[in-house]
Simulated assay, not measured.
Amino acid sequence: MILTVLFYSFVVFAAIQIIYYLVFSSFLFDKKKKRNSSLNESISVIICAKNEAKNLQSFLPSIIKQEYSNFEIVLINDASYDETLGVMESFEKEHENIKIVNVENTEAFWGNKKYALTLGIKAAKYDHLLFTDADCKPISKHWISKMSENFSKEKTIVLGYGKYKQENKLVNLFVRFETLLTAIQYFSYAKLGSPYMAVGRNLAYNRNEFFNIKGFINHMHIRSGDDDLFIQDAANKKNTTYALSKNSFTESIAPKNFKEWFHQKRRHISTAKHYKNKHKLFLSLFFISKILFFLLASVLFFFFTWKIILPIVLTYYLVQFIVIGFASKKLKEPLITFFLPFLEIGLLIFHLSIFITNLSSKPNHWK
């Protein structure tokens, strides 16, 4: 009796996982629409930096060299105590389209990135805003062009892909897999008309969207979430789209070790509890059903007929390999599918450890 219940539960969780992956494939079959290349919106590229002197020297030239007719770069110095402001000023002297917003800590908004971003958004010359981080670089000279061409009268929020540079490290493989899986989800949800998050490394929106929801006012007290919590407030099926052209991607240096990545993800995951209930439900169901799928599969292989369990597991992996395989090709993430079972189990353990740790202590934020 117990084994029968466990078996049918296993079948249900397997079905849930397969349905999720089939749903995730939706963005892969998005028909290419003809873009209005004559639109050529003026763009303000906004970069908020805190103690990023070295990264600005390395990556800012890739923004400056963008092939786009009319854009400015708004550099926000968020109360840095290194040479960040000096580096910004040296670039400003050489390039007329660079504007500096120097932010000092205030008692009310001490160390709050959202406060600094708000000042930068207000100082921007143009209404179409494109965000990235100081440690990111576009992978092509057409990044601004490929992101901005997705703007239209209806589409005022554009989700982009922020990838990590490939390195021969185990942690790099996990980071890139987790980044790919996250992108598959937020692109798919946006495609289905329910956008729930974005990454600040590559995000564009019209300034009116920011002021329509009074900026970050609903979550200014939460240190993280200037990207995903903004999307929770501002994005809907009518105003949100995404960019999948490889020339629209940005690239960052991945965390150097698991400890660094662990602290980074703690900050990111801590904002999920502030999502809308429907998003929390569907994201939790995906995670929990995956854990139960693997647990029940492990038990039933020993105590049930393996000839029945194995085909279900293989069907799950077949669907997963196809979807993630096509997605990794679309988003230019090599080698992921070759290590998929290993990466999936490892990432589950990693996320579980973050969840347990976050229950007992609060993560550090923007410093």
Rank of each mutant, 00 (worst) to 15 (best):
F249M: 14
I217N: 13
D78H: 15
A234M: 06
R201Y: 09
P195G: 00
Q166N: 12
K50D: 02
I121S: 03
I309A: 03
F216S: 02
V23I: 10
I312F: 12
I46R: 04
V171L: 12
A15T: 15
M220T: 04
T305C: 14
S140P: 01
W110S: 14
I144S: 07
H268S: 12
F350E: 04
P61Q: 12
F339E: 03
I222S: 04
L6S: 05
S248F: 02
V319Y: 03
Q66W: 05
S284N: 15
S90W: 12
W143S: 00
K246F: 09
L6P: 00
A134M: 06
I217V: 12
N102Q: 13
D227L: 00
Y20E: 05
E260Q: 14
N55V: 02
F210H: 01
H142Q: 12
L229P: 00
K238N: 11
L22Q: 09
I288Y: 10
I184C: 14
L343A: 03
I354N: 08
N206C: 08
E72P: 06
N40K: 10
K146G: 04
I100A: 04
K214Q: 15
S152K: 04
I291D: 09
N236K: 03
S245Q: 08
E92D: 14
S42V: 06
Y8E: 11
V171C: 11
G120Y: 00
D226G: 01
R223D: 01
V11W: 01
